[in-house]
Design a protein around this nucleic acid. Structure first.
Lengths: 318, 318
DNA sequence: TTGAAAGCGCTAACAA
DNA sequence: TTGTTAGCGCTTTCAA
């Protein structure tokens, strides 16, 4: 059996409560006693039993995060932010990809063993989210709901920058390949788009979705394709390349998110940089605040256009 | 306060022990009683408190996984496998990226709240791993240690296939850009290489590492560059492209792992397919077996060459 | 087949 | 500043 608080107490010649206090409320113990206890703790390699602790405090010291698709490098980046900040706050992180099971089921399962959860780009409807938020402290990422904390990335502004950039290059015939219609990010992008492009879709926000989108976009005769995200844009580039269409000479392409591969592909992708890691960190901050009894809070993080080689002047003919 | 086992007992007019048994040892309760209890459980929405349960059973029902770099799409894929299998087994998954803190510290922290951990491509030395494995049931991924379960991907064979492929294309002057020297995968790849290529490195197993590797490789005059992994190969492609060197006409390039982007880049990358998701699932199987008292086990999964457009005939001149 | 009761290891009143 | 004690919610002997 592992070493318990009683072993420490015995060897340090104090009561168990003193040991407990020395560990979790240092101010309430005489410094000398505390040192002695800590020494014994180290000597014995004592680790408080988390189950016992959380049984009484009702806190687990754990956070959960649910992401829609880990294969999209956007989410590992968020996860990194969450993880590093959680680590600083002394929390461990539970993780779930919502392709494994329904989002609400996952959150409910998690709720049993975490103090709060970060829910990324949820596709649940408002009522469902509200119900979950009622059960568990929650922070939404790229999604809003009154009374629930959220971290937003300014998709509207990002998309507006994209359209402006294309307009400056002389593109008048633009087409937008839309993402999931329930998605908050998609809807915000539409706001930024302000009807300055034709709309196609919805498409899966993946490479394959982009391939399909490109196919449809080609028949419109547009000179610029605006993809919902980078993964789709990569699919677009791939399809155009197999069709022998040059980018950006014949058609310009833009993505969204600035995932790592946006800079590595050919041609490098004009896209919108999202503050992913920071969003992860902020989400944890908000969650921790909330757990400490603070109010629900919304934080919007800025985005910015990253012009690269996949966009160029519109072709002169048409 | 949440509903407890006593509430259920009271309403079902049985003792708490009967409720407990109805839930975790159905055989020990009369069917009729059991049905009645289950009904009340559903009616009240009762969920057993995990902390209380694990306090007494010593089990948490959680698994942990430590990966070296979530930015490498290889690991999200493994994670997916781990997660889906764990979900089937009724376990939740803790996750850690070892860039947040030292591997052994992470494992130790995790050990406190999981029943076992999957340690991926650890760079710790044998003694350290052995010590950890002594504390917590553990499964190693792409790493071996006597007495510890592990899931291996056959890197040696994969690399042998790469070399053979290049040889068939007429490349006699090949260079290998090595990964981390402590890495088991790297060493296995060397075995498969069998000195049939010059060795450079070590390099960071990242895009930037690949850029640096390409720089050094160019001065050797080799006609084929074998990268430790796809991420590096992507860096190689990028550097060659900025230098105006054509792939595969001037130089052939290969990667390793078959990450998603290997198929999306330009030209598509010849690489070695790794059974990532399956490895994740198998790792969980092994861990679960171990927890049930089974013996340590080693499982090696096959790899296979995926020829694409980044490799071609060696140039005739030299 | 069921119930009573003793803890699992810890924290948090309450007393001293 | 420290110690005593009563549980947190559950499982598991042991008896009935």
């Amino acid at each position: 059996m592992a070493v318990t608080i009683r072993d420490v107490a015995r060897q340090a010649r104090v009561s168990v409560s003193t040991v407990s206090r020395a560990l979790s409320a240092p101010g309430l113990v005489k410094e000398a006693t505390r040192q002695r206890v800590l020494e014994v703790v180290r000597g014995l390699g004592y680790e408080p039993n988390r189950a016992a602790r959380s049984l009484i405090t009702g806190r687990t010291g754990n956070l959960g995060i649910v992401v829609p698709d880990l294969e999209n490098p956007f989410y590992p980046a968020v996860l990194r932010g969450v993880q590093s900040r959680a680590h600083e706050a002394g929390c461990a992180v539970f993780f779930c990809d919502s392709r494994v099971a329904a989002e609400d089921a996952l959150v409910r399962t998690m709720a049993a063993q975490v103090d709060g959860v970060v829910l990324c780009a949820s596709l649940l409807d408002d009522d469902q989210v509200a119900e979950l938020a009622d059960t568990t402290p929650m922070v939404l990422l790229n999604r809003t709901l009154p009374g629930v904390s959220s971290v937003l990335m300014d998709s509207a502004s990002g998309m507006a920058q994209v359209v402006e950039h294309l307009a400056e290059l002389g593109h008048t015939d633009r087409v937008y390949l839309g993402g999931p219609e329930q998605s908050w990010s998609h809807r915000r992008r539409l706001v930024g788009l302000a009807d300055r492009a034709r709309r196609l879709g919805p498409f899966e926000p993946t490479f394959d979705g982009g391939v399909e989108g490109a196919r449809q976009a080609l028949s419109t005769g547009a000179t610029a394709i605006i993809a919902y995200n980078d993964l789709m844009a990569l699919g677009v580039l791939s399809h155009l390349s197999t069709r022998g269409i040059r980018v950006p000479e014949d058609i310009s392409v833009t993505g969204f998110d600035n995932i790592l591969y946006a800079a590595m592909c050919h041609p490098p992708l004009t896209t919108v940089a999202m503050p992913t890691e920071e969003a992860g960190r902020v989400a944890v901050d908000l969650l921790v605040d909330r757990l400490a009894g603070g109010p629900a809070e919304c934080r919007e993080l800025p985005t910015r256009l990253v012009p690269r080689a996949s966009t160029g002047k519109a072709p002169m003919f048409s």
